[in-house]
Simulated scan of single mutants.
Amino acid sequence: MFTNFGWIVEAKLKDGQLDNFKQVMNSQIKRAQTETGTLNYQYYLSDAGDILVYERFANAEASHEHIENWDAHAERWLASANATRMLHLGDLPDDVRARHAALSPLWLKPLAGFAREDAEGSAIAKNGHITFENFGWIVEAKLNEGMREEFIKVMNSQIKRAETEIGTLNYQYYLSDEGDILVYERFADAHACHVHIDNWDAHAEKWMAAATPTRMVHLGDLPDDVRKRHEGISPLLLKPLGGFAK
């Protein structure tokens, strides 16, 4: 099992605002690097202007510090992009949840899985800014009625198998009170992606009998041979734009 304090923010880039968005994003990233409790602050962007920000903190106090720093950037950020969705990931306290009430975030709590914390670091200096690399994806699904126990069985079987995959760095299941499922998956490299997909294939039929996939997002500069293995779900590709993982 794992713990998590964090969230995902999704947005749509406004026409002609990429340069302005990058400016405010890089200012935020520079500030966030001074926040000792901010563990992940990672921006992704699709070719069509879809933005996803993955944020993770050491504890609730660290998330409050980050929100206060965000407030200084909020006006310029929202002038460049329209916020479309927010997901809270973890057992967040009410005082943190209340600070995002205007966005009505969907609350997904840890269900099962793991994170190899010793492999979290990722930061690359590029064109004078800090960015990162990533191999992974997010899967979203809806729990089928009356299938919770069956889903947990196949999920636990997958997790047990994934723990033997040394290149699988994060394999984390979240569940909302309404049956919304989110799986956050991250790998060391493309080879590790293929190993995990091979093992997933042995569970796919039972998994999809218990839950209906609704969305998949590829996170990172994934090679075509990995992308093709998910083409039946038509995943959105979001490439690293800026940020870091400590």
Rank of each mutant, 00 (worst) to 15 (best):
T34N: 13
G16S: 09
N26W: 05
F57R: 02
A60C: 09
K14D: 12
E10P: 03
A11C: 05
A11N: 04
I8Y: 15
K30S: 15
N26G: 05
R31D: 15
L13R: 12
K12H: 08
I29Q: 11
A58L: 10
K22I: 03
A11M: 03
L39K: 10
G16F: 09
L52G: 00
N20D: 12
G37D: 02
L45K: 10
V53W: 00
D15F: 05
L18A: 11
V9T: 14
Q17H: 13
A62G: 07
E10V: 03
W7E: 08
G16E: 04
L45Q: 12
N20A: 15
A48G: 06
D47C: 02
L13I: 12
W7I: 09
E61Q: 15
E35M: 13
S27P: 01
Y54K: 13
F5S: 02
T34M: 14
D50F: 10
E61W: 00
T38W: 02
D47W: 01
Q17Y: 06
A11Q: 07
Y41F: 14
I8L: 15
M25A: 12
Y44N: 10
M25N: 04
E61V: 08
A11E: 06
D50M: 05
L18P: 06
N4L: 06
T36Y: 07
Y44S: 07
A62M: 05
A11W: 00
D50R: 06
R56P: 00
N26K: 05
F57P: 00
L13T: 08
A62Y: 12
A32W: 01
K30Y: 05
D47N: 11
S27M: 09
V24Q: 05
V53S: 01
A48S: 14
I51Q: 00
I51K: 01
D15M: 03
K22M: 13
F5K: 04
E35I: 13
K30I: 04
D19G: 04
L52R: 10
N26V: 02
Y54W: 11
A62H: 06
E10N: 06
Y41Q: 06
E35Y: 07
I51E: 01
E10I: 02
Y54V: 12
Q42M: 10
V53F: 00
Q23G: 11
L45V: 13
Y43V: 08
D47Y: 03
I51A: 02
I29Y: 02
E55D: 09
W7M: 14
Q28K: 12
L18M: 13
V53K: 01
A60L: 05
